[in-house]
Design a protein around this nucleic acid. Structure first.
Lengths: 358, 358
DNA sequence: GTGAAAGCGCTAACAT
DNA sequence: ATGTTAGCGCTTTCAC
């Protein structure tokens, strides 16, 4: 022992085994509830009661315990508590891409209500990869998380649903009606229609659609909304006006825009299903010398904070991102509190925000 | 009991307490390791050995166990494992703002390395609030996380450092040299100098600085780099050219730009310490009819993916965001594996990326 | 190679 | 109001 210079451990130095010292060094160096109980001269049950704010504790006793906790700097070992109470107090959130500002804002909404209810959020970026998704989902079975919020494509949810409709999870933004699971989202069909009708009202007849992968329910719904809005206006949608991308990155939107406008009878307006895509579209258009909105009008989707900052400011469909996240978290918490009650699906309102791009 | 229709529980129906059935339904309905052991006809120790890939198990026995696991759909309860092994396998990441694309990319780097090593990431948005920060940090003491990566301001880190230089955490981007903790970052002083020297080379003499809060170490270092670069070029920096903001939002940059260029002898170039700020600056400039880079040149910092997409494309200092995150995670893991070894601080290279804005 | 049994630190009956 | 005690489900000596 090299601790001979220490002057506060005479008993230890003399070879006598001393309970308190030993106890306080147990495990990984931190004190356990038993140590606090000892220091306070009470039982572990009483310490536990004080720690958990139970009623049946005399004020004097409570003070003794609190003093001991304070003096020792004790912190409850939540690993033990979690095992005992059989809950991890963690909420799993699965996102296709944390880097997308749209998802980032939803995640914040989730996080804020989770924390408000004593839960922490385990954030997992799935990259929309079914394999990764599935392995994350397994965290529920392994009890590492109490529940999950899934923002991934409906196709994936379907697979999850089969395997585990019994597990506590809810769908956010994406949801497959055939999977019986609580969800929150918006009316993508109507929203897309609103976007297209705005373009129509501006006099456009050839309206392009830059869509994401049809794995996403929203992609299918928005496409249908786009198609029907056009048809309703007496326009026969040309398949050449449509593109499906497997990315929402700026670059993807940029090159799609170039392709789309390079053809004869090219669209005079483009509806992109994401603001990030739309921003890329504007960039791509500019790179081939087209002016927005004069040569080509552009409308996006989401209304991320960036939308108002670019040139020209983006006309877009606003989604209540924060509320989407908050609602998802609340639905999940509700499900956790009462596993039997069947939680309803909820649709939040969207809004057309008209700026300079269309 | 309403389970009379079940035909597989005769003993239970006859009132005899039966271990297996009761066990397999214990807890929250899922099977425990004891149940698997029973089904496989081995002891729990053996099941545990198989599950953890230990050597000393006969192939035949291993197969029996694996079969039982498969048949029962058993999943290990990590709450129990965590208590037993005294580790949570969670890494805490504290970020001032997940919504900022710069941090989002770093977070991805952390996550990828963490997962690669069997850890999950607990992401916490602190909003740069010392109170929230401190409470998150407490998760380490409560054993909910094994280690932490802090991207928050140095002032906060200082407070944390005092309270807990013994706790396993590392600093990323922000670090206070006086706090003895492993860190990874870039040379902000030189990077800022590079940005300013680029502007100088373009013939600018009046260079403005839009900085964030001086709570941030990077803000102080970049300001010094800016000041010294100017002075070295024989220019006396005018305090009226500088602004400090407490936000990195687009809007903050926009209004700052307006203020800065509204004065007489306004800067002909602006160095903003973040791309988000710089994008706001360009927007703000445009709103008062100034052209970039003709009337005012702009250089940003970070090189988020958006930087290349806006009009004009942003000239900026690129930070290796992904590597920053990956390195931080590796440093932390290193520290966890060997608590005694003193991990060094590491500085990663930056790079001036010249595009259209300056 | 396999099993029995001791705990990890906590909460919650159940006593008193 | 407080104490005693039995586990939660797992890993890990220590026997055999």
């Amino acid at each position: 022992m090299s601790r001979t210079s220490s002057k506060a451990v005479p008993a230890e130095a003399s070879g006598v085994p001393v309970q308190p010292e030993i106890r306080s060094l147990s495990g990984t160096g931190s004190l356990s509830i038993a140590g606090v109980a000892e220091q306070a001269g009470v039982s572990v049950a009483t310490v536990s009661r004080v720690l958990n704010g139970h009623e049946n504790v005399r004020p004097a006793t409570r003070d003794k315990v609190l003093a001991a906790v304070d003096a020792s700097g004790y912190r409850v070992n939540e690993l033990a508590r979690n095992l005992r109470t059989a809950e991890s107090r963690l909420l799993l959130t699965m996102v296709p891409d944390v880097g997308n500002p749209f998802y980032a804002e939803i995640v914040r909404g989730i996080d804020s209500v989770a924390r408000q209810h004593g839960y922490f959020m385990l954030l997992c970026d799935t990259g929309a990869d079914p394999g990764r998704e599935r392995s994350y989902f397994d965290l529920l079975r392994r009890r590492r998380a109490d529940g999950a919020i899934c923002l991934d494509p409906a196709t994936i949810q379907q697979a999850l649903g089969e395997a585990s409709h019994a597990l506590p999870w809810v769908a956010c933004c994406e949801f497959d009606p055939s999977v019986r699971v609580p969800y929150v989202g918006i009316d993508n069909y109507r929203a897309a229609g609103d976007a297209v009708r705005h373009l129509l009202a501006r006099g456009h007849r050839r309206v392009g659609l830059i869509n994401s992968d049809v794995d996403y329910l929203y992609a299918r719904q928005r496409q249908q909304g786009y198609l029907d809005a056009l048809t309703d206006a007496g326009i026969a949608p040309d398949p050449a006006w449509r593109m499906n991308l497997n990315s929402l990155d700026y670059e993807a939107g940029a090159s799609a825009a170039v392709t789309l406008t390079q053809q004869t009878h090219a669209p005079s307006a483009i509806f992109a299903v994401s603001d990030t895509l739309a921003i890329g579209v504007i960039h791509g258009l500019r790179s081939v010398g087209k002016r927005v909105p004069d040569d080509v009008a552009v409308v996006g989707f989401d209304d991320i904070s960036l939308a108002a900052q670019i040139d020209p400011p983006l006309t877009t469909i606003a989604q209540p991102m924060r509320e989407l996240g908050e609602t998802a978290a609340r639905l999940l918490l509700q499900r956790l509190a009462n596993p039997l009650a069947n939680v309803p699906g909820v649709l939040l309102p969207h809004r057309l925000v008209i700026r300079g791009s269309a």
